[in-house]
């Protein structure tokens, strides 16, 4: 939009300069080519590294020696785990964030203080450090307490199949659930901030109007405020979902076997450092970019009207 405006009104002061090829472009291209050349030369001469992309497809699918069927291999299962992890964690984060966001807009001080404490703690400590703390609780105490791993072991074939579709291999269920919980608790704090901002942004007059027609606080929230807050909350929530997909790579540090964890293992065992990390980066980049382009389109279409 700004691009079109910039080229249409080229002389407008302060607008972006109109696109035109100059010597500068040739210079930039030359610099980029030189950089690539130096990297290639260093790789070849000093590190003696040869790219071998032919081994990469085999990391996605392999043929089962027993049945001859094609089954997903390491990287594909890692990607599937990342997708499952992101979906479940975002559902849970929405619930946590919604509850805490509502608490932080309450009339009473107590819920506000509890909500603030949670949000400020999570947002002012590195995610990684929080992950370590959560992990010790969840993985060492909560998961054995829930007994879900034992349940997964004794479940019937149908429920095992459903479970595998929803949460990956049953043998890794405890591992997967702790990843989901850790991620959801972190992202929940960010979602809570978004929800709070959305509710606060609903004009005061809406509350007053609801009160003047005799609605209770609960009905005001449900029928008047939340429907309006939803509209301003959705775009940042969509952005937060993309952040969650990216942050899901963090749980590889606590040995949750998702894409980054698997990529790390594969580079260690094969030594194909460049290929694997570039592929792993692409596996995050392409879905995240597509999602953000999609969300940007929706946002442009359903833009909220100016407040009157």
């Amino acid at each position: 939009m700004s691009r079109a405006a910039g080229s249409a009104a080229g002389s407008t002061a302060g607008a972006r300069a109109p696109l035109r090829w100059r010597a500068f472009d040739a210079w930039l291209l030359g610099a980029a080519a030189a950089l690539v050349g130096v990297v290639a030369w260093r790789l070849d001469q000093h590190l003696n590294y040869q790219f071998r992309w032919d081994s990469v497809p085999g990391l996605f699918v392999r043929q089962d020696p027993a049945t001859g069927a094609w089954v997903p291999n390491l990287l594909a299962t890692g990607l599937l785990t990342t997708i499952r992890l992101s979906l479940w964690a975002s559902v849970l984060a929405a619930l946590i964030g919604g509850a805490i966001g509502l608490m932080s807009t309450a009339d009473r001080l107590l819920p506000r203080m509890v909500a603030r404490a949670y949000v400020e703690l999570v947002r002012n400590v590195p995610n990684l450090v929080f992950l370590f703390i959560f992990y010790f609780f969840i993985s060492a105490q909560l998961i054995p307490l829930l007994g879900i791993e034992a349940w997964a072991r004794t479940a019937g074939p149908t429920s095992r199949a459903v479970l595998e579709w929803l949460a990956g291999p049953p043998a890794l269920l405890g591992n997967f659930v702790s990843g989901v919980l850790c991620l959801a608790m972190l992202e929940g704090a960010y979602v809570a901030e978004i929800v709070r901002a959305g509710i606060v942004a609903v004009p005061r007059g809406q509350w007053e109007a609801a009160r003047s027609i005799g609605l209770s606080r609960r009905d005001t929230m449900r029928d008047v405020v939340l429907p309006q807050a939803l509209r301003s909350v959705l775009p940042p929530l969509a952005g937060q979902f993309i952040s969650l997909v990216k942050d899901s790579s963090l749980v590889s540090i606590i040995s949750i076997q998702e894409l980054t964890f698997i990529a790390n293992e594969v580079t260690v065992s094969t030594g194909r450092v460049f290929e694997i990390w570039i592929i792993a980066a692409l596996l995050y980049f392409v879905p995240c970019l597509l999602l953000s382009l999609l969300f940007r389109r929706f946002e442009g279409r359903g833009a909220p009207r100016a407040p009157d």
């Binding site: 942050d247 963090l250 980054t260 990529a263 570039i278 980066a281």
Partner: peptide, 14 residues
């Protein structure tokens, strides 16, 4: 659109 962790690995290892 890529995780910071992956960027750190790419910069450090590659």
């Amino acid at each position: 659109n890529t995780p910071l962790l992956i960027q750190v690995y790419l910069v450090y290892f590659a």
